[in-house]
Design a protein around this nucleic acid. Sequence first.
DNA 1: CGAGCGAAGCTAATGACATTAGCTTTATGG
DNA 2: CCATAAAGCTAATGTCATTAGCTTCGCTCG
Lengths: 193, 193
Amino acid sequence: MPRAGLTPQAVVREAARLADEVGYEKLTLAAVAGRLGVALPSLYKHVRGADALGQQLAALAVAELAAEMTSAAAGRAGRDALRAVADAWRGYAGRHPGRYPAAQQVPDPDDPAHVEAGRLALDAVYAILRGYGLTGDDAVDAARTFRSAVHGFVTLEASGGFGLPRGMDRSFDQLVAALDTAFRNWPDPVGAR
Amino acid sequence: MPRAGLTPQAVVREAARLADEVGYEKLTLAAVAGRLGVALPSLYKHVRGADALGQQLAALAVAELAAEMTSAAAGRAGRDALRAVADAWRGYAGRHPGRYPAAQQVPDPDDPAHVEAGRLALDAVYAILRGYGLTGDDAVDAARTFRSAVHGFVTLEASGGFGLPRGMDRSFDQLVAALDTAFRNWPDPVGAR
DNA sequence: CGAGCGAAGCTAATGACATTAGCTTTATGG
DNA sequence: CCATAAAGCTAATGTCATTAGCTTCGCTCG
């Protein structure tokens, strides 16, 4: 029997492909092994286990997403940038329905690439907000608002939580426009609750 | 050996309690059975299986959430209503970290109570938007925006996706204020994309 | 009061998956 | 060539979900 010639990379990439096909929740070491033409335990030569594979998949997905966000933001500002980044985000989630949920895990502090990718994605958001004059605590709040809105939309859309998929593009455009409105008129925080 | 005296209700309620303690992803028929002092297969006399239990848990959670949203909206309008419902939503998710993710499943069309509960929750949102003069397609888009933002925030907060939990209350207040701004200045949709 | 019956609960068996241990074999570098 | 590290395998264990089929409780009705 010739060697399959696997590497940790190859395993993670195959897992990513498989996740996009069958869904993240159905991603299984057994299925990945089958895809790679290898017995299940053989994977342990390349990944530490199912949890670790999930983490590495997250790192891959966050890096890809951050790259697309960053590239979407390049050469744009203000509302254009906002919309381009939001569209890139939604586009990534739509094209990678298995990777996207994986990307939601908190970055593994022991994986510098993962942490760095997360920072990059966040930077893309902060860069947009700077265009609206939002900095400091306002930027923190606004960034959380942006992430919440886009992530929430994308998640609900993917799960079918919105009901019939009528007018999804329009609704997303309106969500982005609403964010633009809110960022241009960012509310002064009221004192302690 | 005396009978345990279970009912489908009792099983679902125990599952809900357990999910809140250990997390939805760790919810297992085996654990529920253990909690109820019963052998695992005995549960099948009351629920059709793990998937069905999840669905019934979803129905329970959506009903509870809808009730809290509706009661929060009672006697309030405009920004007050917006904030009260948003707070109720976030509060429910915070108090029920296991039920809340369960509630995200699409309602089972064969469970009228589930469908009805979902409609109730949505109605609470539409009622708020009516206070902003948003109806028709605008209301659809605005409702999706509201749901996206609140659900996204609550999800990211629960998963630790925001990083250190500094200033979470303030950020949420600002998110709600941003929604208020957006709803008061709802953008006219631009033509087809 | 007792017989019978339906439902509740049990044990046993099967099958998917993850994980660990320990063996075999393939490449490859000296 | 051959020695060795790593790649891959089989076997064993444990958890969980599910189905089948048995036992027994507890209620209802004669």
